[in-house]
Computed example of a mutant assay.
Amino acid sequence: MPKEFFTVGALLYKDYDLLDVNGSLRMLGSLKANFNIITITQTGEHVTSFTPQIANYINYNFENCPDFDILFIPGGVGTRDELENSVFLDFIKQRVPKVKYVLTVCTGSGLLAKTGLLDGKKATTNKLVWNWMTSFGPNVEWVRKARWVVDGKFYTSSGVSAGMDMVLGFISDIYGKEEADKVALEAEYQWHDDPHWDPFADKLPGTVDLSTIPS
């Protein structure tokens, strides 16, 4: 396996989705010799997930976090607040040009789209809130029927568990499919390795607005 090493900066916020973060980062974290993962919030304070009894440890704030190679943006109900948070969006704008890759899960792609950095790129997002999310990126080439989409250094995935499939796809692209299969097997996870596999695009209405979901 290649020895290329990456530091992953995981950008968290209040009411992020646990599976978006922990499921996806669990896959990257399996390759400890290749990935270092740091967690970042705006103030450096711990934030609760949408499952408020559970949260992740936070390493840095926007001011003191070091450079990293991969920006990881999860989704979650808290997306609705961060879409109106200029400090949060400016951090994304500042960091994206500096990193080698950007990985988003679920509504995390809506946050990226709101910055304009996805304009002209292909991307996907959560199918349950499709209409609402895609409205924040009118110049993005949204792909509804996709588990995940790759366009240059941007990897965007559909809802929640799709993040794990996308990350395994990323591992496959960088280190080879054999390595991705090994990570999935050791996690006892059934990896859907076809990015075009997406039965949920036809089953979920795409009309839910996160503002209607209570915190």
Rank of each mutant, 00 (worst) to 15 (best):
M1Q: 14
P2Q: 12
P2E: 14
F6M: 01
V8N: 04
G9I: 03
K14C: 03
L19K: 00
R26W: 01
R26S: 04
M27F: 04
M27A: 06
L31Q: 01
K32S: 11
F35A: 09
H46G: 09
S49T: 07
Y57D: 13
I58Q: 00
D69A: 09
L71H: 04
L71N: 07
G75L: 06
G78K: 08
G78M: 00
R80S: 04
L89M: 09
D90H: 10
Q94Y: 15
V96S: 10
V96I: 05
V99T: 13
K100L: 14
K100T: 14
V105H: 10
G110Y: 10
A113V: 03
D119F: 13
D119S: 11
N131C: 12
P138K: 13
P138L: 14
V143G: 01
R144M: 13
R147Q: 09
W148L: 05
V150F: 10
F154G: 02
S161A: 10
A162M: 08
A162L: 01
G169A: 13
K177V: 09
E179K: 03
A180H: 02
K182R: 14
A187D: 02
E188N: 13
E188R: 13
E188S: 12
W191S: 08
W191E: 06
D193W: 07
P195A: 09
P199I: 04
A201W: 09
T212P: 06
P214Y: 07
